[in-house]
Amino acid sequence: MSHAGAVAVSARQPMPGMGVYNQKLGMWVFLLSEVMFFTSLIGSYIILRFAQPEAFAAPGEVLNVPLTALNTFILICSSVTMVKAFAAIELGNQKALRLWLLATIALGVVFLSIQGIEYYKLAHEGFVPMADSYAAVGRDGVGPVLGAPVYGFTFYTMTGFHGAHVTIGVLCLMFTTWRAFRGAYTAESHGGVEIMGLYWHFVDLVWIILFTIVYLI
């Protein structure tokens, strides 16, 4: 999958070791620790789900899958706007860099807003992390649906930690965009955009896995 646009990759200084600059290597090491963090969350979820299968609702019974699928699409869109920002500055296009970064922020905020709405609706129905029982009426009006706190606890822990990562990402994106408007990035020097992109795409990648495990299985 390659495009017509070719970019000049300048090797201003030799890069021994891993072959990338230090800040980028540092971000990768951080992301690898994040892989293990989310893996431990997923592992714990599997243990709890197998231990109390009756406590977990079938896909779509409690959680709003169409709404979350839309949110997944929005996060995927934010990934392409982020990478387009990177592609723009690789070609030295400052205006496109700023526009794509602003679009990424907007999509990140929309994602968080939809997650907030989802949380609000679920809490309104009685699906809260520490409740003794979930006895709310399901979305189809058939409920009550569940009878144990573990489902809510695992759901809010996994999606909440991810939401916190998205929130941090949006804040960092705002900083990156502010710097972009000050002309801090050029075709030759745009490591800040690339590193920001790595974090943002990782957040998208984690959501891809969580969406499947928490909402579809």
Binding site: H3, A6, V7, A8, I76, A87
Partner: peptide, 26 residues
């Protein structure tokens, strides 16, 4: 020292991701 590389077609990747999400839900 300067080398060149082609940018991937990011929009095609986006379309693939969107299509796979639809397939997942279906």
């Amino acid at each position: 020292m300067e080398t060149t590389r082609k940018q991937p077609n990011y929009v095609m990747v986006w379309a693939g991701l969107a299509a796979l999400t639809v397939v997942e839900v279906l």
